[in-house]
Amino acid sequence: MFKIKLLLIAGASTLFGNAIAQTGKPAYSGFINAGAVFGSNDTKIHAQTIHGLKMNGWFGGIGVAVDDYFFQSFPVFVDLRKEVLNKTNTPFIYADGGINMVRKDMKETYMRIDNKPGIFYEGGVGYKIGLNNRIGLNFSAGYSFKAYTEETYTRTYNPSGGTTEEWINSKTDKYALKRLALKIGLEF
């Protein structure tokens, strides 16, 4: 059953791809990539899905990722890429830019941490092996950067004898995380 579905998808996409190639009009294309990011703080899983339009070897789309490196986050980004050759198998270059969304605010009785999003960008090179005109297997390597901010507030009394408790922003940590991202993925 799975093979049949795969054949159907491959067939449909081949036809669709051929049609685009003939018309030269932008057409939907998508990517599902997974891999690992390497940096000075261990190696973690990274997965993303990107959807957009492709025309004449150019692609532009919007993606969202799950990034477990250092502190789990969800980059939301714009993806641009260009295939170098007009062939089924071709090298490509890509660039991403967007926002690194974070969650997991923490609040305890007298301390809380608010996590604020930062920027996300990535750029790199890859190689696409076309399984047919529409489906390809992508390998890529790139430089990946994500940032976020932790604002720590402590609930405290005024030390000189105050009578009220208040939340004081005692510390702000801005993280800049630089990694090497290796991914394998399916283009369709």
Partner: peptide
Amino acid sequence: SITGVLLFIFTLTGCFKDKMETTR
């Protein structure tokens, strides 16, 4: 390609330092 990627990793990993800027 894979060889190139691996070379890329081994060459650059040492430069990938995570930084933290703290305001207290």
